[in-house]
Design a protein around this nucleic acid. Structure first.
Lengths: 104, 104
DNA sequence: GTATCACGTAACATTACGCATTACAAGATA
DNA sequence: TATCTTGTAATGCGTAATGTTACGTGATAC
């Protein structure tokens, strides 16, 4: 298992570079194709909004991949930031009290 | 790849059954161990709240598994509901216009 | 050269949700 | 009976996603 030290790119950046720019699409064009507002898509690709579960489904439908793909990008992004935000120091380690029952 | 037809259990249910009940813990006890309010944990295990990224980190720290574990449970739960909520009928299939460039 | 249009982004309002605080009901215990 | 513990609901706050509206910029039409 490999620990990442570098912050994962915002899913919106991948959306912009690998799907919009790569295929010479515009934000307006894609927003219309997804049935959402331009402002909404603009916020996503600029990192000012995340990819909601509903948006993940729409993106998958439009770009021929899975909602899991977009959901994973978003989840990894959020978890990476949460891991360095949350103060773990005062959390009780229940699993150490179980001696031999720890899941992976 | 296997398509699930049955709704995934709410992550809070797994938390309650496999971690709290299984080890004879109480909501009060676990909430204190996590450093959160009882009401907060109660809402989660009763399906009235989801597991946030921050909560996933805390649960992993307390129970000896990974934030990814809890994050995946939550993501799968949300995506399953989003898939049957979102109206895909009017979404443009950009990938069909790319002919041979579809990602998996 | 000015007017119009398309495009991208910001501002605002609405809605939903995670979380803390508070209040309440039920059961156990002194 | 009174007090304490436990679980849950109600309330308020902050944050975030979304749609609508507005604004600035560049291209195109006249």
């Amino acid at each position: 298992m490999l620990k990442r030290n570098l912050p994962p790119v915002h899913p919106g950046e991948i959306l912009r570079e690998d799907y919009i720019n790569e295929h010479n699409l515009t934000i307006t064009e894609v927003a219309e194709g997804l049935g959402i507002a331009r402002a909404n898509l603009s916020a996503i690709v600029n990192g000012r909004a995340g990819i909601s579960p509903e948006m993940a489904v729409k993106l998958a439908e439009a770009f021929g991949n899975t909602p899991q793909f977009w959901g994973n990008l978003q989840k990894n992004y959020e978890l990476w930031h949460a891991e360095r935000t949350v103060n773990r120091s005062k959390i009780r380690h229940f699993w150490e009290e179980w001696k031999g029952l720890q899941p992976t």
